[in-house]
């Protein structure tokens, strides 16, 4: 991987005002909004997780999705511009391009997660250091399927259709993934769909140390399947275009 390439990509992402608002700030704003909506944050969900902690995880998860998806959108724009053609006149390989975009997606997702957790601590979420670390690490690694999803969308959608596809994807993976509504209250058929999405299982993994009954094995299996499937699509799609 070329670090200069990654460096410039990062600088461009940070320079983009929309990135800062939607992927870094928005999850935290939503979090504060929800905490105030649900009262003083003293309550506890039936599964034993404090309301504030659960909301924090959900909104961090929202951030985990938003950042990487925005990176995908940029791939579509660059494709439309013909920038990829320019890159193909350099020694940069397809693998180099895709891993750089992947690393970028991971880095771009991080500030939003961190900010939500910092605000969580301010709002009264309490856990010991290893648990904080575990939550952060799980959320961050949970970004992997969404980074790949962003890349796949970026390689398939047109620059014009990008906005709609990204919106649809964050709706699908957010709403149906259980960020906004818990799977427990969904009818069986809907719960079935929710449990097929990586969002649901990343959330399960994040909660695993605090609640009982999380099927870690199944969580890892579903997420691994998404990662593998999306990787294959991304590589094939990139090859087909070049």
């Amino acid at each position: 991987m070329n670090t200069r390439f990654l460096g410039l990509e990062l600088r461009r992402a940070v320079r983009n005002g929309r990135y800062l608002i939607f992927t870094v700030v928005l999850p935290s704003v939503m979090f504060v909004l929800f905490v105030n909506l649900y009262g003083d944050g003293e309550g506890t969900f039936p599964n034993g997780l404090p309301v504030t902690t659960s909301l924090m995880m959900n909104m961090a998860l929202f951030g985990v999705m938003a950042g990487p998806l925005s990176i995908g959108a940029r791939i579509a724009v660059e494709r439309g511009l013909g920038w990829q053609r320019q890159l193909r006149l350099t020694p940069l390989t397809g693998a180099g391009y895709l891993t750089t975009k992947g690393a970028l997606g991971m880095l771009v997702g991080l500030p939003g997660i961190l900010l939500v957790c910092v605000i969580g601590a301010v709002e009264g979420v309490r856990m010991d250091a290893p648990h904080w670390f575990g939550v952060l690490a799980t959320l961050w690694l949970g970004a992997i399927p969404f980074v790949l999803l962003g890349i796949v969308i970026g390689l398939i959608a047109t620059p014009d259709g990008m906005q709609a596809v990204t919106g649809l994807a964050s709706m699908l993976f957010g709403l149906l993934g259980g960020i906004w509504i818990p799977a427990d209250v969904a009818p069986a058929w809907l719960a079935g769909i929710m449990k097929a999405l990586p969002t649901f299982w990343v959330k399960q993994l994040t909660q695993a140390p605090f609640v009982s009954g999380v099927d870690v094995k199944q969580a890892l299996l579903v997420i691994a399947l998404w990662v593998a499937g999306l990787s294959v699509i991304a590589v094939r799609r990139y090859r087909a275009q070049n």
């Binding site: 410039l8 600088r11 461009r12 320079r15 983009n16 660059e78 511009l81 013909g82 920038w83 053609r85 320019q86 006149l89």
Partner: peptide
């Protein structure tokens, strides 16, 4: 070998 492409794009935000 290198080329100046007809539609070779530049990055708008760089």
């Amino acid at each position: 070998i290198s080329a100046m492409l007809q539609s070779g794009a530049l990055l708008d935000d760089a």
